[in-house]
């Protein structure tokens, strides 16, 4: 038996009120209800990290959370990273360091990286490798991704 729930949720700084089916995952809510298609689904099994978003500031897999649970929550997706014209420093560093090829995993890595940078002052390469180990990239071999995050961590420019 299916239920529905009215939720009020803030996404990328904007408030939304919606009636959602209880079983609708946050990822599908973002993609189909809000048309924020930058959050990608790579497995829906909680394994690939492509759907990572920030929920109340913490990186989580949006395929493993239901939108119906999230009244009062604040969500940041990849679309909320750039400040209008200006890219987030991580976004620029990803381009500069060849941290992407097909681009499908990129939003998930970016949001995971935001949490790493918020958390640690001196993220070194091995810390970063461990921290992004829940995100799969099939194209790059990760080196460019690690380099990009290290670069931003060193510059401290995210703060």
């Amino acid at each position: 038996m299916t239920g529905t729930t009215s939720i009020g949720i803030r996404v990328n700084g904007e408030d939304f009120e919606r009636e959602v089916e209880d079983r609708l995952t946050l990822a599908d809510f973002l993609r189909s209800e809000l048309r924020l298609t930058g959050t990608h689904l790579g497995c829906e099994q909680g394994s690939c990290g492509a759907c990572t978003v920030l929920l109340d500031g913490s990186a989580i897999r949006s395929c493993l959370v239901f939108a119906s649970q999230l009244t009062g929550a604040e969500v940041t997706t990849v679309e909320g990273l750039a400040n209008q014209a200006d890219l987030h420093p991580l976004q620029s560093a990803f381009i500069k360091n060849d941290a992407l090829q097909c681009g499908f995993c990129t939003p998930g890595f970016l949001l995971t990286a935001v949490e790493i940078l918020n958390e640690t002052d001196h993220a070194d390469e091995s810390t970063i490798r461990e921290a992004i180990s829940g995100n799969i990239c099939r194209c790059t071999g990760y080196q460019g991704i690690v380099d990009a995050i290290v670069e931003v961590a060193r510059s401290g420019s995210e703060r």
Binding site: M1, T2, G3, T5, E21, D22, R23, T25, D28, E44, F66, S68, Q69
Partner: peptide
Amino acid sequence: MKPAPFRLETP
């Protein structure tokens, strides 16, 4: 895959 229908309760 997507989950089967259910009702969410929040005790």
